[in-house]
C-alpha cells in the first residue's frame, strides 16, 4: 500500500471520529464569538416589581427584606442580602437574585437557567471543565492538524495540491495574514 492510500485512510477515519467534536466546536465557536451580543450560555428571565414605601433613607435590615419579599411574593426562598451602594440592595434567593433600586422603588428578579445544548457546547469549547478534558481538547487539536495535513494530499493531478489545490491553500493562508496586517501590526 502506498503512502497516499494510508494518508486517505487516516483522513477518512479521523474525519469520522472527530465529526462530533468538530460540530460542537463549530457551533460553540460562533456562539462564543457573539457572547457580548447574545448570551448563548443562559436564558435570563427577569420580573420587575414596583415596591411601596421603599426609599434610600430606610435602614436595611431583615424586616425590610421580608417586607420586599412579601410584596413580590418571593417568600421562603431567602439566602442572604447585601447592600452594594446607598441606592441598591441585593437579595439572594434560591430562585435567583433580586436587585432593588431603593431610589426608584423597583425590584428586579433575575433568574438564569442553562440554555440547552449550547451551554454544554460552550462549557466544553471554553474548557471550563479543565482536568482530563484538557487532554481530550489537546488530542482533538492534534487530530485537526492531521486532518488538515492529510487533506492536502488526498488527490493528485490537476485537482491536487500541485494543481488548483495550491491556489485555494494560498488563499486560505492569506485570509489570516491580511487580518493580522490590518489589526495586529
Amino acid at each position: 500500500m502506498n503512502w497516499r492510500k494510508w494518508n486517505n485512510i487516516i483522513h477518512r477515519d479521523l474525519g469520522y471520529f472527530l465529526v462530533g467534536l468538530t460540530i460542537i466546536y463549530a457551533i460553540s465557536g460562533v456562539a462564543a464569538n457573539h457572547l457580548r451580543q447574545w448570551d448563548s450560555n443562559f436564558i435570563t428571565e427577569t420580573k420587575t416589581f414596583p415596591l411601596k414605601n421603599i426609599s434610600n433613607d430606610i435602614p436595611v435590615d431583615r424586616a425590610l427584606v421580608d417586607n420586599i419579599l412579601a410584596q413580590t411574593g418571593e417568600t421562603g426562598k431567602y439566602k442572604s442580602h447585601f447592600r452594594p451602594s446607598v441606592s441598591r440592595l441585593q437579595i439572594f434567593l434560591e430562585s435567583g437574585v433580586m436587585d432593588i433600586d431603593m431610589y426608584k422603588g423597583l425590584a428586579v428578579l433575575e433568574r438564569k437557567r442553562n440554555r440547552p445544548v449550547l451551554r454544554e457546547f460552550n462549557f466544553l469549547h471554553l474548557n471550563q471543565a479543565g482536568k482530563i478534558w484538557t487532554w481530550v481538547a489537546d488530542i482533538y487539536a492534534v487530530g485537526l492538524f492531521l486532518l488538515a495535513v492529510t487533506g492536502l494530499f488526498i488527490l493528485k493531478g490537476k485537482n491536487g495540491l500541485k494543481g488548483r489545490g495550491k491556489w485555494f491553500v494560498i488563499a486560505g493562508i492569506l485570509v489570516p495574514v491580511v487580518f493580522l496586517i490590518l489589526y495586529f501590526y
Binding site: F42, F82, P84, L93, K112, Q128
Partner: peptide
C-alpha cells in the same frame, strides 16, 4: 454594607463558572 472584594487570578489561571451570581 457598600463593601465588596474582587477575586481575580493575577495570571488568569482560575476561571469561574458563568452561573456564579447569587452563589456562595
Amino acid at each position: 454594607d457598600f463593601q465588596q472584594l474582587t477575586i481575580w487570578h493575577k495570571e488568569g489561571k482560575i476561571i469561574f463558572p458563568l452561573d456564579h451570581k447569587g452563589k456562595y
